[in-house]
């Protein structure tokens, strides 16, 4: 066999991204991790069924007031955090990233492919889980189901957007920090969730505020402090969308830029 010349060009960006994403599906989601994610995503369905069986109230109200905030503030955030950090940090820590970095593929593209793969996995998982919960809350009442369908579509849109923006944020953490998981958990659940509920202007500094705004949820309205500090009204949809999409763009671009320049101990 003779060594190759320059006759074969490096792979196209689309092909390289597809190969890296496929590698992530094959290696970044081992059976045990998939099993835990499936169990996690089945929990809301179990909760919905338990609520329906208890016969205490309307399923549609429970979906709107309990399930939707639970998905937005816990499941979508948690899944994006877990997979977003792991997509890159796991490979850096394991040392397997060296096999990708020594190929003729831009490092930023490696990150982008992983982010897209994570968004796909998290988005599909969350959508399926939400759909099951939605059906569990509304069936067999067909009228209630159709009446709540627009809310379902809106929540699905917000969840995909949330996965995009938080996956970007946490993959940035994975490219930047040596032990990103703990700090990401503190930031995600400590800052994003808690601060977005406080009255006053502080929620404007969280991404969660804009996500909740898209669903018409106001921060601090149900908070004891709201009697002292007036709660912030939700941001309008255009502003919320602009902030979230810009943030996602900045996070992903910054992560790609960092990974292209940073030197990891490989």
């Amino acid at each position: 066999m003779n060594p190759t010349g320059e006759s074969n060009p490096p792979p196209s960006s689309a092909l390289a991204a597809a190969l890296v994403a496929r590698l992530f599906f094959r290696t970044g989601l081992p059976r045990r991790r998939l099993l835990w994610l499936s169990v996690l995503l089945l929990l809301p369905l179990l909760a919905a069924l338990a609520y329906r069986l208890s016969g205490e109230g309307e399923g549609s109200a429970w979906f709107r007031e309990t399930a939707v905030p639970m998905f937005v503030e816990f499941f979508a955030l948690g899944l994006s955090l877990y997979l977003g950090v792991a997509s890159l940090a796991d490979e850096i820590e394991d040392g397997t990233i060296v096999f990708l970095f020594c190929r003729p593929v831009p490092r930023g593209l490696v990150l982008l492919a992983k982010v897209v793969a994570v968004i796909g996995v998290a988005g599909i998982g969350l959508s399926a889980s939400l759909l099951l919960v939605f059906l569990g809350c509304h069936l067999p009442d067909g009228d209630a189901l159709w009446a709540a369908a627009p809310l379902l579509v809106r929540v699905l849109g917000v969840l995909w957007l949330e996965v995009l923006v938080y996956t970007g944020l946490f993959s940035l953490a994975g490219s930047l920090l040596r032990r990103p998981m703990l700090l990401s958990i503190i930031f995600g659940f400590g800052w994003e969730v808690t601060a977005s509920h406080l009255p006053g202007d502080l929620p404007r500094l969280t991404l969660m505020f804009y996500l909740r705004s898209l669903l018409g949820l106001s921060p601090g309205a149900e908070n004891m402090l709201s009697s002292l500090v007036p709660p912030l009204p939700p941001a309008d949809a255009a502003t919320a969308l602009a902030v979230l999409l810009s943030a996602a763009g900045v996070f992903i671009s910054l992560a790609a830029w960092i990974i292209g320049r940073r030197e990891y101990r490989l």
């Binding site: 190759t4 320059e6 060009p9 490096p10 040392g95 060296v98 020594c102 003729p104 831009p106």
Partner: peptide
């Protein structure tokens, strides 16, 4: 990238 296309690397780890 075109040069890296022609390189092969076997890491120690």
């Amino acid at each position: 990238r075109r040069l890296r296309r022609q390189l092969g690397y076997s890491p120690e780890l």
